[in-house]
Design a protein around this nucleic acid. Structure first.
Length: 661
DNA sequence: AGCACGCCGACT
DNA sequence: GTCGGCGTGCTC
């Protein structure tokens, strides 16, 4: 808008009451630079106090009646906030009773001046790249490809196999499928976003894309990479040409030129949940963004999340499965009675491993890292706990001193809090101890351990035992010749509503790493879960779970909002909800001081209430809670004297907290 | 947050 | 009479 004199600015502040657009006059000297999307500094309330923000729009006239302040400065010419992302941030914030500026902090990486200057100086060709269209293999009639071409929304069951790249490395077939769909977008001049849970998946996806596309068309947005690299990748997404944007959960906020597809791999992995306010899950952001931009949406996995299954059942997603169906050869075996001395590997699993080792690598999935994750008093059996923080003590390696799994403190002079004995007994096996035992059971066989600390992402095709904690399984050249799922019973022992879903996901992801026809041995688990894995019908399991949650009125059959804060603020927020917009309210109840590695930052008298409501009332509930947050933020204020100490907010709202579902 | 405005007790 | 305490309100 040439000649515009007014800029509408979103101010970067955590204060909920400032979460709206402010009109500012554009001074003469900044008329050329003040463009939509640029970073600016503006005075707020009084001169001398400057805030940063982004211009989201230009206008001829202000909507504000009073006299306008002037924009202080334009930080740079880079237009980092595109109209699409500004709109997305608003929608996501509205849906979760949060601030758009909180969302923008996730969407726009910290500015790196040198990187930005280099990018602004460079030429960006708008020439569409020449990429040959590809077909997604493993599905009948190219169903996933056509869905992307027609901008439809699908729940995609991945092909449970491995594939070899040109360079000789091996990746999961899921990465090939998603890369093919992304390449197809680029071939038609559109961009694609693929969000994956962690760096292992990201590495596989990036390598796979390297086979299909020139490297400079792929932007990797990785939370672990240095800020410069992150900002450089972000700026490349802004260029007016199709890109394939891959990254972890925050990639769903990346700007994209003509977005054709947004895909989430393994959408029930907890890493897709955002721990920062307003806590929007990558899946939900993808849903909002697909709606907003009209692009294709792909929720892919070896398991079907209960949330995706709900969307299938309400007709919002279409289910697409591999055709012909590929079913890993799953064998279910009873657990060996564990007397602490004999090998923990039952006969059937042992034979499968033995046979597999004749031709290549064998995967052994265990529940926990370390040597002995749980210790107990040798005399009375009481669990051994840290003297400092009361966390559980464990052994990191065979000869190590006991240490706390929460705070890391070494317990050099431990004595039992009950009977004062000073020797401990090992009560569980971690990956290192399992590896040690397997090394004895299979003399002469190479043993590799992969867990959160020792990151092994790939192994070659030579015989070896690969002991991996769940989620840390490397990809094997040619696929594993056998997969042993050893700790099924232990994994199932966790107390959580989603423990079944989680276990099925861990097992299915490991099973998909097996070579075609090689045995996958599930030890010590029976019932519907074992059946779902053996028949490879994860969507049916998800459908049954969803039916259960419907009768219980648990998420995701309904939505929930968790309100935490002072009793007054929580009560006020609850009573501000109009009747008919919610089902019921649980609580408020006092928040028990959480005994755990992470202490929640809430006031000592904090209470919590949980509001359940139908999806149809989401907007109304979010709007009401949003005003309650603003009310509590502006009303309740602390006395002026105590600077420095920052009390927790009087009211915090979190929608669809995965912890309680 | 941070700063202004505004309405009641002890001071030259 | 008025200096300054901090409750309340607003930020273009």
């Amino acid at each position: 808008m040439p000649g515009a004199r007014v800029a509408r600015v979103i101010v970067d502040t955590p204060l909920p009451q400032l979460d709206r657009l402010f009109d500012y006059a554009i001074p003469e000297r900044l008329l050329d630079e003040a463009a939509p999307g640029v970073r600016v500094t503006v005075p707020l309330r009084t001169a001398g106090r400057l805030a940063t923000g982004y211009i989201v729009d230009l206008a001829d006239h202000a909507e504000f009646d009073g006299t306008l302040s002037k924009i202080e400065s334009v930080v740079s010419a880079a237009r980092v906030l595109t109209p699409e992302i500004a709109d997305l941030a608003r929608r996501v914030a509205d849906r979760s009773a949060g601030s758009a500026s909180d969302v923008l902090r996730l969407a726009i990486p910290p500015r790196m001046v040198r990187v930005e200057k280099a990018w602004l100086a460079a030429e960006h060709d708008a020439e569409p790249p020449q990429v040959a269209p590809v077909v997604a293999r493993g599905y009948r009639d190219d169903a996933p490809g056509r869905a992307v071409d027609e901008s439809r929304r699908i729940a995609l069951d991945a092909v449970p196999r491995q594939a070899r790249l040109h360079a000789g490395t091996w990746v999961g077939a899921w990465a090939v499928t998603l890369a093919e769909l992304a390449a197809r977008c680029v071939a038609s001049g559109r961009s694609a976003i693929i969000a994956v849970p962690d760096y292992r998946d990201l590495d596989q996806l990036q390598a796979t894309l390297g086979d299909l596309l020139p490297d400079d068309l792929v932007a990797r947005m990785d939370a672990a990479q240095p800020n410069q690299d992150r900002y450089r990748a972000f700026l490349r997404c802004l260029e007016p040409a199709p890109r394939v944007i891959i990254g972890n959960r925050s990639a769903v906020y990346a700007p994209a030129h003509r977005l054709g597809m947004i895909a989430i791999w393994d959408d029930s992995d907890p890493l897709h949940g955002e721990p920062l306010a307003p806590y929007a899950h990558a899946r939900d952001v993808a849903l909002v963004r697909a709606e907003q931009s009209g692009c294709a949406l792909v929720l892919a996995g070896h398991t079907r999340s209960v949330e995706a299954q709900r969307l299938v059942e309400v007709g919002w997603l279409t289910s697409v499965s591999p055709d012909p169906a590929i079913v890993p050869r799953v064998v279910v075996t009873a657990a060996q009675a564990d007397d602490g001395t004999s090998s923990r590997v039952p006969g059937g699993a042992w034979r499968a491993a033995k046979e597999g080792l004749a031709s290549g690598p064998v995967l052994v999935q265990v529940a926990r890292p370390g040597y002995a994750p749980v210790l107990a008093c040798a005399r009375c059996g009481q669990a051994a706990r840290c003297e400092r923080c009361d966390g559980p003590l464990g052994l990191g390696s065979a000869g190590a001193a006991p240490s706390c799994r929460w705070c890391g403190a070494i317990a050099a002079h431990w004595s039992c809090s009950d009977c004062r004995a000073t020797t401990v007994r090992l009560v569980t096996r971690g990956s290192a101890r399992t590896a040690e035992e397997l090394g004895r059971a299979f003399p002469g066989v190479r043993v590799v351990v992969s867990d959160g600390e020792r990151r092994v992402t790939a192994v070659d095709g030579r015989p070896a035992l690969i002991v991996a904690t769940r989620g840390a399984e490397p990809v094997a050249e040619g696929g594993y010749r056998a997969v042993l799922l050893l700790d099924g019973d232990r994994m199932l022992a966790r107390e959580s509503l989603s423990v079944g879903d989680d276990c099925l996901r861990w097992w299915s992801n490991a099973a998909a790493l097996a070579a075609l026809g090689s045995p996958v041995v599930l030890v010590g688990v029976a019932g519907p879960l074992a059946h779902a894995l053996a028949t490879w019908k994860q969507p049916e399991y998800a459908a049954a779970q969803l039916a259960d949650r419907r009768t219980l009125r648990f998420p995701p059959a309904v939505r929930v909002a968790t309100l935490t804060g002072t009793p007054k603020a929580v009560t006020d927020a609850v009573s501000s909800l109009s009747a008919g917009t919610f089902i019921d309210v649980l609580g408020p109840t006092p928040v028990e001081s959480v005994r755990g590695p992470k202490q929640a930052s809430v006031a000592s008298d904090a209470v919590r209430a949980i509001v359940r409501f139908e999806y149809a009332h989401g907007a109304a509930v979010a709007a009401a809670l949003r005003s309650a947050i603003i009310r509590s933020a502006t009303k309740a204020r602390r006395p002026r004297g105590d600077r420095g100490y920052r009390p927790p907010p009087t009211l915090r709202v979190r929608f669809d907290d995965p912890e309680i579902s």
